[in-house]
């Protein structure tokens, strides 16, 4: 069988699944708004940090990061359920003690400028109105001797 024929058969095969999936399935009426039920911080995918919790404060996510020059990392989070209607979140941190030494953007980008021990508390909060959920976060920047 020629390659083009195999390719055409594959396309038709996928087409069959898509057609039945689109026009052949039962339709349900459902509540169009799905509210966020939980938000949690997850481990950094590039290995910048791991999320920890303590038994005495299970509702707080801890992050410990060692300082290095031009330190910059992203806070990764998961919003549940996955089909929530509005999955946007905001980060809200109090950095008044460390102005000019650290910056945390609304989308969770952390930029560290000073090699100094810092503890910053804040929240990650869903933006779906009155039923908004939030999670407390504590970021700890540790001093590095090698820098």
């Amino acid at each position: 069988m020629k390659k083009s024929v195999v390719l055409a058969i594959m396309v038709i095969y996928v087409f069959a699944i898509v057609v039945v999936g689109l026009w052949g399935i039962k339709t349900y009426f459902f509540n169009p708004t799905v509210y966020v039920s939980e938000i949690k911080l997850v481990d950094s995918e590039d290995g910048a940090y791991k999320v920890e919790t303590t038994p005495d404060q299970p509702d707080v996510d801890y992050i410990r990061v060692d300082y290095k020059k031009d330190l910059k990392f992203q806070l990764y989070y998961r919003v549940l359920p996955d089909d929530a209607s509005n999955k946007t979140v905001e980060f809200d941190f109090d950095i008044s003690k460390y102005v000019g030494k650290i910056e945390i953007t609304e989308v969770g980008e952390v930029l560290v400028y000073a090699n100094e021990r810092m503890t910053i508390d804040g929240y990650i909060r869903s933006r779906d109105g009155v039923k908004a959920k939030s999670r407390k976060i504590r970021i700890m920047i540790r001093v590095s001797e090698s820098v």
Binding site: I12, V19, G24
Partner: peptide
């Protein structure tokens, strides 16, 4: 894959016809 979808009657008939299409197409092309 079809079994994983909750199909209506039209979907079932489509699935039957697509089964015939795929079987015949591969055999005929061969």
């Amino acid at each position: 894959i079809f079994a994983a979808m909750t199909t209506q009657l039209l979907g079932d008939y489509m699935a039957y016809s697509f089964n015939l299409l795929i079987i015949l197409l591969i055999l005929f092309a061969s």
